[in-house]
Amino acid sequence: MWTYLIRRLAWNVPVYLGILLFIMIVLRVRDPVFARLPKNATEQDKADIRAELGLDQPFVAQYRDLLRQVCTLSFDQESWSHPGQTVGQIMKRSIGPSLAITVPALVFTTVLSVTVALCSAWFRGRLPDRLLVLTSVLGMSISFLVYIILGQYFAAFRMREITGIDLFAISYDPEVSGVGGMEFVTTVWPRYYLLPVLTSVVVAMGYDTRFYRAVMVEESSRDYIITARAKGAPQWRIMFVHMLKNAMIPIITRVATTLPFLITGSFLLERYFGIPGMGNQLLLAVESLDFPVVQAFTAVFAALYIATILLTDILYALVDPRVRLS
């Protein structure tokens, strides 16, 4: 197994180097110097800014510097649009808010949609199942943004107007950024984060339920299910013991592939509700051509992505006795 993992890791080294190269090249399509030039700038100003940003260095040197930051895990380059702050500091500050949305959303969505999919498979071909399939296709055909807008309007705005219950904030309040610990969990999170989480769950449910249902239906038509029934196994045992463990393989794959996205956060939700997470930060960085931030974010994400693929392989081997890592 170890040799397998090492070989996989070795294969991913060129991929990773490629990602860093790619993102650096793409970013340099636009010249960040223009955006920072004062009015009536001279050639000298231009050269100064270029030198200040480190863009006068040869490309290879810039690449080497990014690589050094990644390898030493010290993102100490200064952000261009937040002078005085290093990229590492920005990441550290924004990862919390992102995780506060994505982690609960992933947990709720997965547990709910696997349960719903099991129920659907139980009622396969009958009314509840058909309704579910229909609802999820209908739900998938509506834009995420519509859910966000309507969710905010009805759950936060109208609810307050009609019932007087002020449960959800309409948008994020920067004042609460410093709050941590228990207070965050009991007051800040429900007020500022729960609504984005719920919106995210509703949107993701359509896709996930459909996928998991397909998995369950596939499993429920397998021969070993008939064998189990012929042994006199009760329905619940067939579903939760026989089917679920087999279905774990695709479930794990799906959950694992979403893991790296936990740290990127949801761009749309963070932007709409004004939550200062990674997604929002990255958007700002792209808009202000803040190369160090974009590069570092992409580098961290890609590393996590590759790591989760390896993790998935290991999990497979744990769940499915047929899989041998070699």
């Binding site: 991929v15 990602i19 996205f261 990127t264 990255l282 974010f297 992409t298 590759i306």
Partner: peptide, 13 residues
């Protein structure tokens, strides 16, 4: 390489 950058990040960038 492309798959290891999240689609939406790639799109936005």
């Amino acid at each position: 390489t492309f798959a290891s950058i999240p689609g939406i990040v790639l799109l936005i960038v």
